[in-house]
Write a protein that binds this DNA or RNA. Sequence first.
DNA 1: ATGTTGATGCAAAATCATTGCATCAAATGA
DNA 2: TCATTTGATGCAATGATTTTGCATCAACAT
Lengths: 158, 158
Amino acid sequence: MRMNKIDRFDSKILQALQRDARLTLGALAETVNLSPSQCSRRIARLEKESVIEGYALRLNPEALGLKVTAFVFLSVDKGRMASPREAVAALLARDEVIDCHTVTGSHDFILRVVVEDLAALSRFLSTTISPMPGIRDIATQVAMDTLKTNGPLKVESG
Amino acid sequence: MRMNKIDRFDSKILQALQRDARLTLGALAETVNLSPSQCSRRIARLEKESVIEGYALRLNPEALGLKVTAFVFLSVDKGRMASPREAVAALLARDEVIDCHTVTGSHDFILRVVVEDLAALSRFLSTTISPMPGIRDIATQVAMDTLKTNGPLKVESG
DNA sequence: ATGTTGATGCAAAATCATTGCATCAAATGA
DNA sequence: TCATTTGATGCAATGATTTTGCATCAACAT
């Protein structure tokens, strides 16, 4: 992962596309003061360099019937930390699991989970998480309000 | 937020676009077995109904020099919970803050924070979080590995 | 039966993205 | 100093994609 080849044009392009990834090159060109063709070439370059990894939909979970977001904190037995590859892979494959990180501190994993309702959360915890080998502790915090999700990243030209 | 007007075509469209929001209507039409024009109209409808809220970039944070993800847990004085509107708004406006939820349990807020390095995290905590009025407790867990981010939501036709 | 509504595909029209090409500027080397 | 190379740029032509008018069809209601 090489250092910033991101100049101020790239930076402006990325900022604009984070707001709306479907801006036309014409509109983008206006906001960054560059021609559409050059915007196109710069975007292609940012994709090739994997600065841009892809394009995603911003969906409204509630409109899909997904009314509950929760954070799940897992601790696992240290002795069994070498092998849970499969178990983790299975966990990541579940579409209730939106994010999964390993973290410092008293727990080992933090999951962000999105499900239909509390019953679905309970079901997920008891049938998917609990049976995982080596699980020592599960703690759950249910989100009451989502004040911000997936905010734009800071992009600096440097 | 009305109930599922999402039929199996919508569902397939949303699943495909979650994988790649820049599929052409032609390609999309093939995978969902519908004409491009009808896909276009359905997408327009899903946007109008705010099922699709927008289009986002999937960026590689490391490529932007953002090497540290952390979860920050905040507790605030209950007595001062009525007024921190401004403080919260200021917090949400910071671009280190990617997610912010209020949660049940021992803390009040969970933040997901993405910054350049640990020094930047420290700076953020001491200059942005600590001075917030009514903060009673701050706990931080640093992510060591990101196993999954922003996974696709489950979309069901019902 | 008849009319209404909404979904659909096709094809035309409009919009948009990409690319070849010429130009320019900055950096490099003689 | 001057020539040369390299990379970025805009323009215009080309090619691809999206949108829309229109006719058809099926389901449902009158």
